[in-house]
């Protein structure tokens, strides 16, 4: 067995530098790598590019990096929940590349699986297609999109083992599995780290080969963005 365990988030983030490109898992605030984000804030790394479906909220998630003006560029599909984001974007402080959500996921998957580019119909005829190669397949127009290139991928899983195998929970799975192995170094933080041999191999979502560093996360806040409930009876 090859061991991927590191002792804490500081060790997991070893090698991080200014101006790097990071992938961060999560949808809204669900399944975000809370420990790694806190470490990026603590290290005060600057001028970074973040590939993440959303940009957090003003005081949590990637919003924490935005507050400290650590992010140079965001690549996302939806950023509607963050007023500071909107302010920095409209003032020109923050570079933003908004791309379709399925394209974002597939560009991660392409990077993970060694596919340099692919064609998708999403965005054809819109400003997303500007400057991109267009081709017709089966009578339908498609645009060419490229695999991402990133230095670090930060993902959050429910359970993981010392070999780097990961299991996700509910809709906290989202972009996390697609980002594993899609960057030079993939860091996985987990709610429960167990010895190799403990997880049922049939239940593993992401094999450890896609993960370079894994650590036991701490103090998860797991904030709910939109609490919607119904009354009993």
């Amino acid at each position: 067995m090859i061991t991927k365990t590191v002792s804490n988030v500081q060790e997991a983030c070893e090698g991080i530098q200014d101006r790097m490109t990071f992938m961060l898992g999560g949808f809204g605030l669900s399944g975000i790598p809370e420990n790694c984000i806190a470490e990026l804030v603590r290290r005060n790394v600057k001028g970074v590019t973040c590939i993440s479906n959303n940009a957090g909220v003003d005081d949590f998630g990637l919003g924490l990096l935005l507050q400290k003006k650590q992010i140079k560029k965001m690549i996302s599909s939806y950023v509607g929940e963050n007023a500071e984001f909107e302010r920095q974007m409209l003032s020109g402080e923050l570079e933003v590349d908004l791309i379709p959500q399925g394209t974002l996921a597939q560009r991660c998957l392409a990077a993970q699986s060694g596919i340099p580019a692919f064609f998708t119909p999403a965005g054809y005829g819109t400003e997303v297609a500007e400057g991109k190669e267009v081709r017709e397949f089966n009578g339908k127009m498609h645009i060419m999109e490229r695999a991402f290139k990133a230095d670090f991928a930060f993902v959050k899983a429910w359970k993981g083992d010392t070999a780097g195998n990961l299991i996700f929970k509910g809709t906290a799975r989202n972009f996390n599995p697609n980002m594993c192995g899609a960057a030079t170094i993939t860091v996985a933080e987990v709610e429960e780290l167990v010895p190799a041999g403990t997880l049922d191999p049939n239940q593993v979502h992401i094999p450890g080969i896609f993960v370079q560093r894994i650590f036991q996360g701490t103090a998860y806040e797991k904030r709910i963005e939109q609490l919607t409930v119904r009354k009993r009876g």
């Binding site: 949808f27 929970k169 509910g170 809709t171 939109q226």
Partner: peptide
């Protein structure tokens, strides 16, 4: 549908980021 009060799960949301059930 939305969960009953107290049964909401941060790991179970829809694309509108609302808590849901399966």
């Amino acid at each position: 549908p939305f969960p009953f009060e107290g049964e909401e799960d941060p790991d179970l949301i829809n694309a509108g980021k609302q808590t849901i059930t399966a």
